[in-house]
Amino acid sequence: MSLPNNQPPPTPKVAPEQLEELFTVYGAKIYGLALRCGLAPKEAEDGVQEVFLKVQRRISTFRGEAALSTWLYQVALNTLRDYRRKVVRQTRSTPMSLISDQPADPTIAGASATPDEEASILERRQLVRNALDNLPPKFREVLILRELEGMSYRDVARILDVKQGTVESRIFRARERLAAELKRLGVN
């Protein structure tokens, strides 16, 4: 039986056990997103907690029009944005990069690098983090979703609730802004 065009699909019911299952599947991903958004590990854990409690409160608003993961990322990004703002306010506008000390992926930092090389990588990472933090949120978020989460333009558009064309031009402008910011910070 098909639904009439103007009728939304039925809202799925989610029991607490299913929420726990949702946490099992997406907990690590949302934690990674929190770190990529510039939160320190401890704050990221708190952020994940806030995200899933919000999911629990808002699950009834999920209409099933988009994939559950898209909806979850939407809630997560909004919650983490607010949480990040709160943390920055509490630390009296300390840039997130100064309190974020999460370890980078060792495969990227180079496990076999010499101490000098490692220090240079860490310094560069810090500068990139600062440059990303200095971007306006709309550019920072689009870069995180595309470059760090590896999402398609279509998914980014759904999560940010904008048109795909907007994502396309925003990513381009974000890259331009990031390149300029890195240059300003002296990164070659």
């Binding site: 607490p16 929420l19 726990e20 946490f23 099992t24 907990g27 690590a28 934690y31 990674g32 770190l35 990529r36 854990e45 994940v48 907690q49 899933f52 409690l53 629990q56 999460q102 370890p103 980078a104 992926d105 060792p106 990227i108 930092a109 990588i121 560069r124 990472r125 990139v128 983090r129 990303l132 870069l143 470059e147 760090l148 890259r175 990031l178 390149a179 890195l182 990164v187």
Partner: peptide, 29 residues
């Protein structure tokens, strides 16, 4: 730029860390 941004990829959380987060979430719930 892509290479620079890849430096920000965080390490995946350990199983122990995930377990602690899940327990905390269940307590919060």
């Amino acid at each position: 730029l892509r290479e620079d941004l890849a430096l920000l990829q965080p390490e995946a959380p350990s199983a122990q860390q995930l377990f602690a987060m899940q327990a905390r979430f269940e307590d919060g719930l």
